[in-house]
Design a protein around this nucleic acid. Structure first.
Lengths: 166, 166
DNA sequence: CAGCCGGCGCGGGAAAGCCGCGCACTAGGT
DNA sequence: ACCTAGTGCGCGGCTTTCCCGCGCCGGCTG
């Protein structure tokens, strides 16, 4: 935890602006970044390398058009577990990870125990998924499906402003 | 729609493997990709450029550690609209986009009309958000908050296998 | 079967990234 | 007050990567 805090205070204004920029586009050359933040090219390169080494930047990925990922349908599933003991929950955490259709899963407070986001190519695929993953053998008592009519926002974490140290 | 289908059939096995690779790491040099997929460097470069131009790859981003994005709390909000006419819905679509705390928003079927994913740094911030965004002036009749206890899966779209034409 | 077209690999030139240097600024100790 | 160790900057050269025009090959079409 101390180490965590250290990392936070190690990030200054330059780092934050650089992160903000590469979070939108990590393929622009350091020369452009350099003049945007007001540093030399080598300084930018050094800082980015450090940020990646220290796992402030954890990955660099290409985003492919959602229309092409076979995720034509986005479902959300509110589900209730039978007995909600800690080990039952842990087991379900592990279980649900195994299904690639599940692009999000949260253990939540309230009447339901879990919320899942499931992306599939068709209703048939969704049906197969529920039979495989949401049966009583996994401790699921019941669930309710929210079918997505329209997506208003889906920018996983990129919209969140940074809250990095000082 | 025809254009969409055209794009799909335009992607061959090489494209798919390249996409798969850059979806995990878009900063590895073309030389590495080339030998992984069995093409020359220039062919790889050409194909990637084409994929980006044609918006098969829609973006290239750095992922920053979730612990550092000030998103300590993830909430999901199930909400009901007062009158659910189409223009009310459209208005809410536009409205909800304006709040950076909202990292996901879906219009859904069922008892509720919308599901939101909201990421905030604190409960106070969440409280402020609900007062600003989820008031009756926006047509919201009522809502229910699911507080995340633990996240099992959160890999926005990267888990989904590709389903690209033939 | 000839001609066309798209995509390949190749190679030269431009650009981007890497690395070692010297310098400035800061903090801590004597 | 000075000196010293440490950190991060910018600069320049060297290496790697990328870009682009070329000629070539294989498949489709008329």
């Amino acid at each position: 935890m101390l180490h965590f805090m250290r990392k936070m205070i190690d990030l200054d204004e330059f780092d934050r602006r650089l992160i903000e920029l590469v979070r939108q586009d990590n393929q622009q050359p350091a020369r452009e970044l350099a003049q945007k933040v007001g540093l030399s090219v080598s300084a930018v390169l050094r800082r980015l390398r450090r940020l990646r080494e220290e796992k402030v930047i954890v990955a660099d990925v290409a985003i492919v058009s959602p229309a092409l990922t076979g995720s034509a349908l986005t479902m959300h599933v509110l589900l209730r577990m039978g007995q909600s003991g800690p080990r039952r929950m842990d087991a379900f955490h592990r279980e649900i990870r195994l299904h690639p259709e599940v692009t999000g899963a949260w253990e939540v407070t309230g009447e339901e125990d879990f919320l899942l986001r499931v992306q599939v190519g068709s209703m048939e695929e969704y049906d197969r998924f529920t039979r495989r993953a949401l049966g009583e053998e996994n401790g699921v008592q019941g669930f309710r499906t929210l079918i997505t009519i329209r997506t208003a926002v889906d920018e996983s974490a990129s919209r969140r402003p940074l809250r990095l140290g000082r």
